[in-house]
């Protein structure tokens, strides 16, 4: 049973992955499925946006290195949005509370998990910069801090419904990891309700695959 659950979580994690969640708060009444896979964990998040300022979701996160999973309630709050005709900037506060459970025969008992951090981004139709961080306290399982910076550009400007393409570079910093700073070039494809990212971490030789689907 444990093995089956682990396999299911890993499949979910691998199929659904995204880190710097594009627009983690949707339009009012909108649902979003977000996945994220980085060098440390894979996760799936489904959230609902009851107001333009916040979303509330359920998240499953598999920490592959430390053999535990977190099942959490995950609110995201849009603290501020800057507008102009040609750009948009956002500051989000995200967090979660849930349970951390051992996987892959990890014998540790379930423990409460808490995490939180901020995300910020600024983009035009052809330039993007973003930052996010998170501190996770999962009891005896882990106590982790991470932060990541991302910058990218679109080689062309697509209109509504077109395929949008972005080339990006993400630098992440995880002080507790042996390779504390890594670099991941990636490509982002964006069309209608679907966003897909694929990249490769050059420092630790791991692929990245992310997606967001909004409906």
């Amino acid at each position: 049973m444990t093995t089956a659950r682990t396999a299911l979580l890993l499949v979910i994690g691998c199929l659904t992955s995204i880190a710097a969640a594009a627009r983690p708060v949707s339009y009012t009444g909108g649902w979003t499925v977000i996945g994220e896979s980085d060098r440390q964990s894979s996760s799936a998040l489904v959230h609902y946006t009851p107001s333009p300022n916040m979303s509330l979701g359920l998240k499953t996160e598999v920490n592959r290195d430390s053999d535990f999973a977190i099942y959490s309630v995950h609110p995201t709050y849009l603290a501020k949005r800057w507008f102009d005709a040609n750009y948009q900037g956002n500051l989000y506060i995200h967090g979660g509370i849930g349970v951390a459970s051992g996987i892959n025969n990890n014998p540790q008992s379930d423990q409460m998990a808490l995490y939180g951090g901020v995300m910020a981004d600024w983009e035009t139709r052809s330039l993007f910069v973003g930052y996010r961080n998170r501190y996770l306290d999962a009891g005896d399982y882990a106590s982790q801090f991470m932060q990541a910076f991302r910058a990218g550009f679109a080689p062309y400007e697509g209109d509504s419904g077109d395929l949008h393409t972005w080339l990006m570079l993400e630098i992440d910093h995880r002080p507790s990891d042996p390779d504390s700073v890594t670099a991941t070039p990636l490509v982002r494809f964006f069309k209608g309700p679907l966003l897909i990212e694929a990249g490769y971490n050059l420092t630790v030789n791991q692929p990245l695959f992310n997606f967001t689907y909004r409906f």
Partner: peptide
Amino acid sequence: DVLGVVCDFCALAMNKI
């Protein structure tokens, strides 16, 4: 005229609402 519409998710949100 809309402020901040820079991506397809923005367009999707306006279309949905």
